[in-house]
């Protein structure tokens, strides 16, 4: 179902969702929102793990509220600062927002291919030479990630220690970024030739073998999205 939706509508939903989570200031409403998103995530078997780095960020966001923005009754005195009720609520609220944004982004990415988004964007008026860049960049990003590990292996086997000190770190950064930059730049001419040699940019528009069109279902979905957003907003005002 989700894969059939116009990717531009999904992009819009993502942006609207992001706005909503920032408008909502009821912890309970946000919690419902998070739950809905998690159900989606499970239902569509979306990749993405709430790993250490994400958890660390959630904790940082939560602590920032608790430490720096005390508000309301003191719940706990831990010498350096107080844990107040308002701060804990805010902590939950803001880390909940973060959580929702991440989940929404994963659902979006997990159900949208760069190829579809690119032709969807062209369909709503973005020049294809620009929208195509997404496909192009996504084709090369994994290649560079592969090259990154190769370059690091090459420097280590030639005796470059991955430093525990700043100097070693800077050397490692230098000897990692330069070869990769070279690799990237040495691809430019071939790629540009290969594309212009195949008439890229010959006309302002092009045909899409697999066009992504805006159907009446997409229109319906857009309208329901707007209604849903307004409802959430009103509900939030009421709570």
């Amino acid at each position: 179902m989700m894969k059939g939706v116009n990717p531009v509508v999904k992009l819009m939903a993502l942006v609207m969702g992001a706005v909503i989570v920032f408008l909502v200031d009821s912890v309970w409403l946000l919690l419902c929102f998070v739950l809905i998103l998690l159900v989606f995530k499970v239902m569509y078997d979306i990749k993405g793990r709430f790993g250490r780095s994400i958890l660390a960020l959630v904790v940082a966001i939560f602590l920032a509220q608790v430490i720096f923005v005390p508000e309301g009754a003191v719940l706990l005195d831990v010498r350096l600062f107080d844990i107040t009720k308002g701060a804990v609520e805010n902590g939950f609220l803001i880390s909940g927002r973060f959580f929702s944004l991440i989940s929404m982004s994963w659902i979006f990415v997990g159900t949208t291919s760069p190829r579809d988004l690119s032709s969807g964007l062209a369909n709503v008026g973005v020049p294809y030479r620009f929208s195509f860049l997404l496909i192009l960049a996504m084709r090369f990003a994994p290649i560079f990630q592969f090259e990154l590990s190769n370059v690091q292996q090459a420097q280590r086997i030639r005796g470059l220690k991955v430093g525990k000190d700043l100097k070693g770190l800077i050397r490692s950064v230098r000897y990692t970024t330069m070869p990769l930059l070279y690799s990237a730049m040495s691809k430019v001419n071939t790629l540009a030739s290969s594309m212009e040699g195949r008439a890229f940019g010959m006309y302002r528009e092009k045909t899409f073998l697999h066009p992504v069109r805006f159907t009446k279902w997409d229109a319906l979905l857009t309208i329901s999205l707007i209604i849903f957003s307004v409802e959430i907003y009103l509900l939030n005002r009421l709570l």
Partner: peptide, 17 residues
């Protein structure tokens, strides 16, 4: 410049409209 065989072959023809 694309990720799928079909897209890659169609690329030039699409640009030629």
């Amino acid at each position: 410049c694309t990720e799928i065989v079909e897209d890659e072959i169609a690329f030039g023809l699409e640009n030629r409209r």
